[in-house]
Amino acid sequence: MSEFIRLDPPVIAEIVAICDTMLAEFESSRIRAKNLVSANGFGDLESARQLAAGYSRKGAGTPESAYERIEQFIETLTQLRDAFAAGGEDFLDTQFDWARALDTVDRDM
Rank of each mutant, 00 (worst) to 15 (best):
R81C: 10
E3F: 04
R81Q: 09
G87M: 05
A60V: 08
T21H: 06
A24T: 09
R6M: 11
G61W: 00
A33S: 10
G41L: 01
E64D: 12
G54K: 03
W98N: 08
A53H: 11
V105N: 00
A83M: 10
E71P: 07
C19M: 08
F4V: 06
D44F: 00
E64F: 03
A48P: 03
F96W: 14
F73C: 14
G61V: 06
F26P: 00
D90M: 03
G59H: 10
A85L: 11
A86Y: 04
A52W: 02
F4P: 01
A17F: 01
M22L: 13
L92A: 13
F26Y: 15
F73K: 03
D82Y: 09
R6G: 08
W98I: 11
R30I: 09
S47N: 09
G43W: 07
A13Y: 01
F26E: 05
Y67N: 10
G43R: 04
R49D: 05
S47M: 10
D44Y: 02
S29Q: 10
A33D: 01
R81N: 06
A48T: 05
V16Y: 01
C19A: 15
R100A: 15
T78S: 13
D82C: 06
A53N: 13
T62S: 12
F96E: 13
D8M: 15
R49L: 13
N40E: 10
D108W: 05
L45H: 13
S2Y: 04
L77A: 09
I31T: 05
E71C: 15
Q95S: 14
K58R: 07
D20L: 03
I31L: 07
P10Y: 02
G61Q: 03
I12Q: 07
S2P: 03
D108K: 12
W98R: 11
A39K: 01
D106L: 09
L7F: 11
A85M: 05
K34N: 11
V11F: 03
E75T: 14
M109G: 15
T78N: 04
A99K: 07
G43S: 03
D90Y: 01
S28A: 15
A33F: 10
R49F: 05
A83T: 13
A52M: 02
R81H: 04
Q95W: 01
G59T: 05
D103P: 00
G61E: 03
I18F: 02
V16F: 04
D103E: 15
R57N: 10
A66Y: 03
D103W: 11
I70G: 00
D20F: 01
E75N: 13
W98V: 12
T78L: 06
R6N: 15
D20K: 09
Y67S: 09
P63T: 07
I12E: 12
L80E: 05
A48S: 14
A24Y: 03
D8A: 14
A33I: 10
I18D: 13
E75M: 14
A101Q: 15
G43V: 00
L36C: 04
Y55S: 06
L80H: 08
Q95D: 13
E68H: 07
L102S: 11
Y55V: 11
R32E: 12
F42P: 00
I18Y: 02
R49K: 15
